[in-house]
Write a protein that binds this DNA or RNA. Structure first.
Lengths: 199, 199, 199, 199
DNA sequence: CATGAATGAGCTTTCATTCAT
DNA sequence: CATGAATGAAAGCTCATTCAT
């Protein structure tokens, strides 16, 4: 990549990060392009050199979030861990990914219904991929009698809700680190799945 | 209350319900007053006789949600149930309250950061009241060795996140009723609190 | 019609007239809504109470022009005039209609390709109706040996081009009145159609 | 001219042609420099090495059109043809010039009011030159009793309107060739000028 | 009380133009 | 010479809010 392309890529990323943060802080609508530009010390016009619309910006935030999450499951997929350990791993990674560096949780959490169809179709597809992988882990655990019988989809929604919500209250000043919280959530949310025998 | 006042109160409630539903469906910003008025077959002008601003409308949605939740804990407070049963009761009521009749979950979930300070102060106060009650239950359980030692605030946030998220995916067409989901969530989320001895 | 409705209709017409004039003077793009509003002493926002978009405004100009022209042919249709006199009548009416009161010629002339498809479809349909009526007169004249054989469509385009162009140069200060010009054009443009025998 | 200058001149011409075509197809405003550049496979920046502004580009289109028309009358001027034949010749040449090679008609037709004063002054001067030459032919014809008495300016405008309009409807797929149309227009538009005696 | 009408602040977006490299 | 990048002015449009009737 040439110097120019590098710088361009860097700017694109910068814009994305700032947009993600502001979308998280104030919501998609209340975060104006004027504000995003001001924070970046760009002009509004310049931003449009890199993006095609505000919607596109929101989409890219969601897309980046989903891509990071999908990368996570690639890492875990072939680990040969038992289902309970694997699920805990996924939950921990999920939390750390969304919380670290990019403020993607609240984006993911709050504004998917702000996406126009042509964008949300893509995101939903990726989300399904992600959730199906998790469903696979749970189903595997059930068939191996490690997990008890549960309504899989409901459990996934429960876990996702709990995990995604962290962005709403977590503060670096709190008594627990993000890693600790991740570990605690993983344990807390996998425990009720364990079949009595395995406890 | 005079007939007039009654009618006015009824209209106010109607407006509130419709607003809550539309806020849930499309988000605070995308739900316009024009639309709310159209659904109610009022004119935009008329609505302003009953409300003072769109912000106020959103505030009242949040406030109603919080009041209903606070009423719930009143019912449970003197039940003399043991902590685990009491907590389950609260979770079940929480879910059923937010999901039923008024579409208040998504409001609660998605748009509290859309509230201006003077409004959100009030809401936050009520939320603290609510969460403190739940914290009391958990602390009571811990001191009575029914619950294990946990970071109370974190657990509350975990539970709230999971429960509030239901509004995003629940559909009446699904295989489980709202009651069943409430029961399942209550069990699932209280289980990991139980101390080993009590299992 | 109530007083209110009357006033609203009047405003709508006012907006239409001013828009038509400015579209004529400066072209569709260069005539901004700011400017239209300023001339009307409305605010930009108010105008949008009456129209749905700038495109819609342009469409309405075209539509009004076409409706006036179609009304004209209704008047002439049953006059039992011979084809040459009837055609002259149509040309005179065409010119007077487009030039008088509303500045619709230049609109008609210059900016039909600025209309989005959904609008231009309607306009084109009406234009076809209009041109087909004229084509009918000419064909009738030919079959009755009053007109010589000519390529009908080409003649219509020739006449339309000449007539519509008037808006580009006509000034009230000139030596000929609009009526005189209309008469002159009518004679000039019908003469070459006459078959030698009839001269 | 050096090789370099030649190449530059060639590019300038290329830009002009493409601009003329796009101005014709979509109108001055809707044809963006981005688009012109894209079609030429230049970058927007590069184009500015050859032109000074978009206005200038439009001006050059008009100017080229006028220059071609003025060249035409040079060819005819000394032909010693009688007025009627000479006028027909001018009309035919007018039509063929504007329609062929460069898409200059619609430019001429539609967007002269888009030119800023300093540019349109020059164009108007050339147009006057052109129209005066035609006026000379007509006046000559009148004084030689070949043409009847007519308001010369009005006739010129009538002819110009008819001829310039061709660009709006002419299609190569139609039944008549451009030459045939030119001939037909010339005959049609000169006929009404002939004095009765000369018929 | 209800409403049609008006307002204006604010938003996203476009695009001709410039300029450092 | 060519280009990617940046700029900013201006445009069309939306919508909560107000107010006379």
């Amino acid at each position: 990549m040439s110097y120019r392309e590098e710088r361009a890529a860097e700017r694109r990323l910068n814009i994305l990060k700032t947009a993600a943060r502001l979308f998280s802080e104030k919501g998609y609508h209340d975060a104006t392009l004027d504000e995003i530009a001001r924070e970046l010390k760009y002009t509004k016009g310049s931003i449009y050199y890199y993006i095609s619309s505000k919607q596109d910006l929101l989409f890219q935030c969601h897309d980046m979030a989903m891509n990071l999450l999908l990368e996570n499951i690639e890492k875990v997929r072939d680990s040969e861990l038992p289902p309970d350990a694997m699920l805990k791993e996924v939950i921990k990674e999920h939390i750390e990914t969304l919380m670290s560096e990019f403020n993607l949780v609240t984006v993911t959490l709050g504004s998917d219904y702000e996406l126009e169809d042509k964008y949300s179709d893509i995101i939903i597809k990726k989300r399904d991929l992600y959730e199906n992988f998790i469903a696979g882990i749970i189903r595997d655990g059930i068939s191996r009698r490690i997990f008890r019988e549960v309504p899989v989809k409901v459990v996934i929604n429960l876990i996702m809700g709990a995990a995604n919500w962290i962005g709403r209250w977590y503060s670096e000043e709190g008594p627990m680190s993000l890693q600790e919280i991740g570990q605690f959530y993983a344990d807390y949310l996998v425990t009720p799945l364990m079949s009595r025998n395995s406890a």
